[in-house]
C-alpha cells in the first residue's frame, strides 16, 4: 500500500468540503436539484478526481483516460463541482447549473467537458461502464472504469443484469461504488425495498466486495487500491454514507433528496455549517 501523507488527506477533505459548499450554492441558485445524494458522495468524488483517476482536464476525451460513469445521475451538483475544481471548466460556471443558457444540464450530459456518459434515468450507468470496460479489453488499454451507483438506484433490475454480465465477462477493470446513504426520494430504502444483506448479494453475483465508511478518505483510497489488484472479478465498494452529510437539517432525511435549501435562512445555515466543518479540517 502506498503512503498517504497527512497533507494529502487534509487536501482531500478540504476538496470534499468545497464540493459540499458548491453543491449548496448550485442548487440554491438553480432553486432545484439534488443536494442529499450529492453531499453523501462528496468524499468519493474528492478521492476519485484528486487522487485516483487518471484524467486530463486539458484533454477531456484523451483515449487513455480512466472513465467515470455517474450512474446516480442526480448527484450532478457534486459531480460538476468536482469537474470544475479539477479544471475541466471554470468554477464560475457552476451557478449556471440547470439554467437555459447553461451546459450544466440537470443530469449529466455529454455537453459537459469531462462527462463520459449521459445518465439520469436510474439503473443504466453500470451497463455503459461495462461497455467501456469491454472496449478497454478489446483495445488492450489499461484504463479503469468507475461507476458510482445510488443505493435506491440498485432497486432497478437493469443493475443486476449488468452485475451478472460484469462477473461473467471477468471485468476486473471495472470498479463500482455504491453510495449507501440508506435513503431514496420518498423514504428510507429499506422501507421501499429491502437491499440487505447488500454485501452478500454482490458477492453472490460474482463481485469482489469491499465495505467502507464512505466519508473516510483513507478508507476510500485503500479500497480503490485493493480494487485495482486484479483477480479476474469486478469490484464493488459499498460506501456507507450519510444522506445530506455536512448540513444538519439535510442529514438522514428524504426531504432534501431533491430539494434545495428552502429559504435564505436555511441557505446560510447550510453554508455556515460547511464553513465550520472546513475550519475543523
Amino acid at each position: 500500500m502506498s503512503d498517504i501523507s497527512p497533507e494529502k488527506i487534509r487536501e482531500l477533505k478540504l476538496i470534499a468540503n468545497k464540493i459540499r459548499e458548491l453543491t449548496i450554492k448550485m442548487v440554491y441558485a438553480a432553486q432545484s436539484g439534488h443536494p442529499g445524494g450529492s453531499l453523501s458522495a462528496a468524499e468519493i468524488f474528492a478521492v476519485l478526481y484528486f487522487h485516483e483517476m487518471n484524467v486530463d482536464p486539458k484533454n477531456p476525451e484523451w483515449e487513455e483516460r480512466d472513465r467515470f460513469v455517474l450512474s446516480k445521475g442526480h448527484a450532478s451538483p457534486a459531480y460538476y463541482a468536482a469537474l470544475a475544481l479539477r479544471g475541466f471548466f471554470s468554477e464560475e460556471e457552476l451557478v449556471s447549473f440547470r439554467k437555459l443558457s447553461s451546459r450544466l444540464q440537470g443530469h449529466p450530459s455529454l455537453m459537459v467537458p469531462g462527462v463520459d456518459m449521459c445518465t439520469g434515468s436510474l439503473g443504466q450507468g453500470l451497463s455503459a461502464a461495462i461497455g467501456m470496460a469491454l472496449a478497454a479489453k478489446l483495445d488492450g488499454k489499461s484504463y479503469k472504469v468507475y461507476a458510482l451507483l445510488g443505493d435506491g438506484e440498485i432497486e432497478e433490475g437493469n443493475i443486476w443484469e449488468a452485475a451478472m454480465t460484469a462477473a461473467t465477462r471477468k471485468l476486473d477493470n471495472l470498479i463500482a461504488i455504491v453510495d449507501r446513504n440508506k435513503i431514496q426520494l420518498d423514504d428510507f430504502t429499506d422501507k421501499m425495498v429491502i437491499l440487505d444483506p447488500l454485501e452478500e448479494k454482490w458477492n453472490a453475483f460474482g463481485w469482489r466486495v469491499l465495505s467502507i465508511n464512505g466519508h473516510d478518505v483513507v478508507q476510500i483510497i485503500r479500497a480503490l487500491e485493493v480494487a485495482k489488484e486484479v483477480d479476474g472479478r469486478p469490484t464493488v465498494i459499498i460506501a456507507h454514507t450519510v444522506k445530506g452529510k455536512g448540513v444538519s437539517y439535510m442529514e438522514n432525511t428524504a426531504k432534501y433528496h431533491g430539494k434545495p435549501p428552502q429559504d435564505e435562512e436555511e441557505y446560510n445555515k447550510a453554508l455556515k455549517e460547511i464553513e465550520e466543518e472546513r475550519r475543523e479540517i
Binding site: 483515449e63 472513465r67 460513469v69 463520459d116 456518459m117 439503473g123 443504466q124 450507468g125 453500470l126 451497463s127 455503459a128 461502464a129 461495462i130 461497455g131 467501456m132 470496460a133 469491454l134 472496449a135 478497454a136 483495445d139 433490475g157 437493469n158 443484469e161 449488468a162 451478472m164 454480465t165
Partner: peptide
C-alpha cells in the same frame, strides 16, 4: 443472454469508447 436493457447500455458504453 436475455438482457436487452443491459445490452443497450453496454452498446452505449462501447460506442462511447470508439
Amino acid at each position: 443472454g436475455l438482457q436487452e436493457q443491459n445490452m443497450m447500455g453496454i452498446a452505449a458504453g462501447l460506442a462511447r469508447s470508439g
